[in-house]
Write a protein that binds this DNA or RNA. Structure first.
Length: 109
DNA sequence: CACCTGACATAAT
DNA sequence: AATTATGCCAGGT
């Protein structure tokens, strides 16, 4: 049995910020990091990576800077990425070549 | 486009 | 408790 990974205050902030993202929009690790008063994006991605809140926290709505998808939690073979891209497309966020097609979809905190 | 550095948190040693 | 290594990064050279 694997030990539970209790979310920390920092992670909770990341989850809250991520949850703030309305449907059909996306955000970047950097923006979230700034929103929670942290200049680090890795810490943000780190929190999302654990994602104890699963689909409740739309980590797929969070992309890297430069409007790139960046990676994904456990991107085993890149197949999961496609799934998220599709979900985003369904929500109204179009991605082209793994990059955000409409910067207008960027959510501002 | 490739490489290295910077900033922050978690897990492991 | 401290240090080391790593991680859905970012940014500059």
């Amino acid at each position: 049995m694997k030990p539970e990974r209790p979310p920390t205050a920092f992670e909770l902030k990341v989850y809250e910020a991520t949850r703030r993202i309305p449907r059909g929009k996306v955000s970047t690790y950097r923006l979230i990091g700034k929103s929670i008063k942290c200049d680090s994006s890795q810490a943000v991605g780190q929190a999302l990576r654990r994602n104890p809140f699963a689909p409740q926290v739309p980590c797929h709505r969070v992309i890297a800077s430069s409007l790139t998808i960046g990676g994904f939690f456990g991107e085993r073979k890149g197949t999961e990425i496609k799934r998220k891209l599709k979900l985003l497309g369904v929500e109204g966020v179009r991605f082209v070549d793994g990059k955000l097609a409409d910067p207008d979809c960027l959510h501002r905190f």
